[in-house]
């Protein structure tokens, strides 16, 4: 499916079985997080990676 990038406005291709919370890299350089709104998929700029656990 195609979702609009909130940063550059161009379409972003995401898989039909995408999960809420998945991270998508867009060609414009934006790192985006998948959110669900009802049946709709929305992308928001990723935040909060400074407060993390790691490997």
């Amino acid at each position: 499916m195609r979702v609009r990038c909130p940063v550059c406005g161009l379409p972003v291709e995401v898989p039909d079985d995408v999960m809420e919370g998945e991270v998508v890299e867009h060609d414009c350089g934006a790192t985006l997080e998948v959110r669900f709104e009802g049946n709709a998929v929305r992308l928001v700029p990723l935040d909060g990676v400074a407060d993390d656990w790691g490997e």
Binding site: G21, E22, V23, G48
Partner: peptide, 13 residues
């Protein structure tokens, strides 16, 4: 409970 879904979360699911 999760926020970002990384490879680890997909493997766990």
């Amino acid at each position: 409970l999760h926020d970002i879904v990384r490879l680890e979360e997909k493997l766990l699911f």
